[in-house]
């Protein structure tokens, strides 16, 4: 006995309108969810621009000293901008090379070893440590002995960045096909040379964008800096000694002030910080797309 499949017509059945409605409702709710997610972001940016634009637009905002007389109205934010760049730069200089080396170690030298797993576990735990706790840690191990300084802030931010850089580097290295390494080995290549000359270049776009996102995140941190760089208004170009200032701490101190001059400087600093983070983000995109395009066009 043979069974023939019923062959339904390809015209829409009566169930179709319901299916279409369902589809329309689902699509609409997805769009709605997107709007709900994006609207606050856009509002934040627009609000900060509307509040901060006048400050940022005043001549000398980016270069002039912060008024020592804090009630004064007007620019600038120069010391905080250089402070933020200096602290974030020092943190990057410490965390990125170390983090990439850590990622290389985890992925290339200890993939399945117990030691590697322990490191990976702690890196994951470190990623979840609240930034204020990191600040407290640096306060105890560094500030209590050596005093407040930009370097102490950089240590705290570096500790925050390190696990992110380690884990993104590891993930990016993991994405490099095994065959690529094996091809290099098949040419008589040795492990270290292969990692440096083949694996890292192949993973570079991802590692760079991961590192720059970590930088962007660190640049906006406030809590760990309060413990570590202190709070001053004057510029301090000495990385290792004396309290310093940063955009985020300026926002923190000025935004709660009762004086309008300070509040508008806080908005200006907020806009500047968003701008800096934005530039970092764009740079990371450009860098990684440039690197990956270099070999794929």
């Amino acid at each position: 006995m043979t069974y023939t499949m019923p062959r339904p017509s390809i015209t829409r059945s009566s169930a179709s309108p319901w299916r279409q409605t369902k589809s329309a409702v689902m699509t609409a709710s997805l769009v709605l969810a997107l709007v709900v997610a994006v609207v606050p972001l856009v509002l934040i940016i627009l609000y900060v621009i509307s509040k901060g634009w006048a400050s940022v637009n005043a001549p000398g905002w980016f270069t002039a000293d912060i008024p020592i007389f804090s009630r004064a109205v007007g620019p600038g934010m120069g010391p905080a901008i250089t402070g933020t760049l200096m602290i974030t730069g020092a943190a990057t200089a410490m965390a990125v090379p170390l983090g990439v080396l850590g990622g290389i170690y985890l992925n290339e030298y200890s993939a399945a070893s117990r030691y590697g797993n322990v490191i990976r576990f702690f890196a994951d735990v470190m990623t979840g440590v609240p930034s204020i706790v990191m600040g407290l840690f640096v306060y105890v191990i560094w500030v209590l002995s050596f005093g407040l300084s930009a370097f102490a802030g950089a240590l705290a931010l570096g500790c925050l960045m390190l696990p992110i850089v380690i884990r993104t580097s590891e993930e990016m290295l993991k994405l490099v096909p095994r065959e690529l390494r094996e091809s290099a080995y098949a040419l008589g290549g040795r492990k270290a040379g292969t990692i440096v000359r083949v694996v890292l270049p192949a993973a570079a776009p991802g590692i760079i964008s991961g590192a720059l996102l970590a930088v962007a995140r660190a640049a906006g941190e406030t809590a760990p800096l309060l413990f570590t760089i202190g709070f001053v208004n004057q510029a301090n170009s000495d990385l290792l000694h004396d309290p310093n200032t940063a955009l985020s701490t300026q926002i923190f101190k000025n935004a709660i002030s009762v004086f309008p001059g300070q509040v508008s400087r806080a908005w200006g600093a907020a806009l500047t910080l968003i701008g800096i983070v934005f530039v970092f983000t764009i740079l990371s995109r450009i860098a990684s797309s440039f690197l990956s395009r270099k070999h794929q066009s």
Partner: peptide, 27 residues
Amino acid sequence: AEVRRRIGMVFQRPNPFPKSIFDNVAY
């Protein structure tokens, strides 16, 4: 490593290095 230099290998999927054609061969 010397064994692998003498005994080359070509893999299932083409897997050039992320480098130029010249640098691939010259690697």
